[in-house]
């Protein structure tokens, strides 16, 4: 007895989720930040963010289809993190890395916060 491990399965699944997003298929929540709207899949948000996990596992909020985030959240930072959730690639521009880190902290994405912090420190040292 044994098993076959498909080593690229996780990436193939995430790529398909990103294709669903780009074609607006099965999107079940709109995130509003200061007038900007972002459509997404609740399942992906919950899988990647502690904040969304808390929101969508709360029986009183689990069926919300529109969520307004604190207006102090930066939409550009959120857009970078939403792309990260669907691609595993985190865009790091010098001008936005601090905003990205602060938004990741707000979304309770601690590993991304740590990575941004290390990136900032390395840039300061170089």
């Amino acid at each position: 007895d044994g098993c076959i491990q498909f080593t690229r399965h996780a990436g193939d699944v995430l790529l398909n989720f990103n294709r669903l997003r780009s074609r607006n298929i099965l999107m079940d929540v709109t995130i509003q930040i200061d007038g900007q709207r972002f459509c997404a899949h609740r399942a992906v948000l919950v899988a990647c963010s502690g904040l969304f996990y808390s929101i969508f596992t709360d029986p009183l909020k689990s069926n919300l289809s529109a969520i307004s985030l604190d207006p102090t959240v930066d939409p550009d930072g959120f857009a970078i993190l939403l792309d990260f959730m669907y691609t595993s690639t985190l865009t790091l521009k010098d001008s936005l890395v601090l905003v990205t880190m602060n938004t990741a902290s707000y979304l309770q994405m601690e590993h991304v916060v740590d990575t941004c912090r290390r990136f900032i420190k390395s840039r300061e040292q170089s």
């Binding site: 044994g2 098993c3 076959i4 080593t7 690229r8 699944v13 790529l15 294709r19």
Partner: peptide
């Protein structure tokens, strides 16, 4: 699944959703 008679399949595992229909 590491170790016990594990065969690693490097190829695609599922269908690819097209960019548009």
């Amino acid at each position: 699944y590491e170790g016990v008679n594990t065969i690693k399949e490097m190829g695609r595992s599922i269908h690819e959703i097209p960019r548009q229909e």
